[in-house]
Design a protein around this nucleic acid. Structure first.
Length: 195
DNA sequence: GATGCGATTCAC
DNA sequence: TGAATCGCATCA
């Protein structure tokens, strides 16, 4: 049973707090849903790995949209990556969704992914957008209050681990990747300690 | 206008 | 281990 629904207000703390607080949450998107088992935080200020560091367009996006807005972009010219905009007194940034534990709509996920194993459906930022059919049309959308999409708080039973973010070249020292401990649905094992 | 680089995934 | 593939930033 999902807990209370998340609103834009839940994305007004720091990007790190928002990311950590999302682990375990139920994510629903147009008939599919999953448990959030892996996210990363990116800070608009002082984080060289964040798009805002080198992209004026990302800075314009942050300035022009409210917290809770979807930030979706094409990576490597191949994969759509899904983020949620964070904006508040503690700073702005993004939470990148990196992996889900599939819960409902599994047949559609399997069809879109052309994979059968549950662990191969949403175990990566590009995989989960393909499984849930999240594409560029979601970019800039306020989806938290929608009837078919949204997030619901849920206890991260098992605990949360913090570890370095994946696939970045800058600011590797920051442990801003948050994973549900021992989940078999992660994009990669988490080496970090309990947090 | 041309060049280089990715918050990745999958096949080889 | 390397190809696929393209928007955006940077430079000429």
């Amino acid at each position: 049973m999902p807990g209370e629904r998340l609103t834009a207000d839940d994305f007004t703390r720091s990007p790190v707090d928002c990311a950590r607080g999302l682990v375990g949450a139920r994510f629903r998107w147009n008939g599919c849903s999953g448990r959030v088992v892996e996210v990363e935080a990116y800070a608009a200020e002082g984080d060289p790995a964040c798009h805002t560091f080198s992209r004026p367009s990302a800075r314009r996006f942050v300035a022009a949209h409210p917290p809770g807005t979807a930030y979706v972009y094409l990576n490597y010219g191949v994969h759509w990556l899904f983020n949620i905009l964070v904006a508040g007194p503690e700073g702005a940034g993004f939470v990148l969704f990196r992996a889900l534990e599939p819960l409902t709509g599994v047949a559609a996920m399997r069809r879109r992914r052309a994979r059968r194993d549950l662990r191969e459906l949403c175990s990566g930022p590009g995989k989960l957008t393909q499984a849930l059919a999240i594409r560029e049309e979601a970019h800039g959308r306020e989806f938290l209050g929608g009837g078919r999409c949204g997030l619901w708080r849920e206890d991260p039973a098992g605990g949360i681990q913090a570890s370095p973010r994946i696939g970045i070249s800058r600011a590797r020292e920051l442990e801003w990747r948050f994973t549900l401990r021992d989940s078999p649905f992660l994009s990669a094992p988490a080496p970090g300690g309990t947090r």
